[in-house]
Design a protein around this nucleic acid. Structure first.
Lengths: 155, 155
DNA sequence: GGTAATTGTGTAAGCGACTTAAGTTTTGTA
DNA sequence: TACAAAACTTAAGTCGCTTACACAATTACC
């Protein structure tokens, strides 16, 4: 197997994939139209927040860390989700500096269907791979993320 | 193997990876500092152009297509690379509407070293995988790109 | 206990890569 | 010859992020 070729292919593929993933998707807040809220597009970052929150409430800082973004970026994401009534901020009684983010009551299921829509194209792609290939793919994503993550750290 | 879990992991990983890949990298035009040109950072898109051009001169439109971006975006990429003396525009004698892009003489090797630097973290990641895993990874990238690419097309 | 450094969040300003819309030049065609 | 289409560019605007700064709450420490 020619590693050089694979590296070059990946180098060409990755940015293109990035653009496709980032591209405004058909996934919207439409699920909540019944509540009279405007129909706004959801970005990959918002999806990440919604997924992270399924594992329980989180502080803004923790979200930023999990997503690999700066705290102000996390603030913005939470702002938008809050404006659409998906999530809610409340103070941590133990430390009043931290702002805990959690689903608004009943929005857990709405979030599920939104994430589900986003999940669809990914499922379609993975379904064309064997079990071994699929886990090798995810393993590769992690390795590459790691590698790029530490690459930018210079003394 | 639990596909649901893999999909969710990927959904969390992909945007984070995007940000890391897009993040200003240490790769620069430093190789050409000897020519007195300023040291400017190179984006993944520029790398894609440099790689594409190794397979011969290309029109701006062709570049846009290969990269999956709009023609104006390709124009910008070429603009910047031109400003740094890496590539050159010249008219296609056969059709004077098309603008062919090619390396400036002698810049082919410079481009190679620039791409090489960018290639490094990717090589590091792939070197931690078996041959089967590496090719499964690339296969997965293609499938996901395909899947997201066609997902946005609604009648 | 009071002052100082640290931490968590938010605001402001700005950047980079992209998009669509519109304009110019060249080409094909009825 | 006139007109639609194609290739590229320019212009304007959007989006998601960043750093720098401000502020409140906590912790450290003498």
């Amino acid at each position: 197997m020619d590693r050089e070729k694979l590296v070059d292919e990946t180098l060409m593929l990755l940015p293109t994939l990035m653009r496709l993933v980032e591209r405004p998707s058909p996934v919207e807040f439409g699920e909540m139209a019944h509540r009279g809220l405007p129909d706004v597009q959801v970005s990959p970052g918002h999806i990440q927040v919604l997924i992270a929150l399924t594992r329980g409430p989180r502080s803004v800082g923790k979200l930023a860390e999990e997503l690999g973004v700066s705290p102000p970026a996390a603030t913005q994401l939470v702002d938008k989700l809050t404006a659409h009534g998906m999530v809610r901020r409340h103070n941590d009684p133990a430390d009043r500096r931290v702002v805990l983010v959690d689903y608004v009551e009943g929005m857990h299921e709405v979030a599920r269907t939104i994430v589900e829509k986003r999940r669809r194209p990914l499922q379609a792609a993975l379904s064309k791979m064997t079990d071994d290939e699929a886990s090798a793919f995810v393993k590769g994503l992690k390795l590459v993320a790691d590698s790029f993550g530490t690459a930018g750290e210079e003394s």
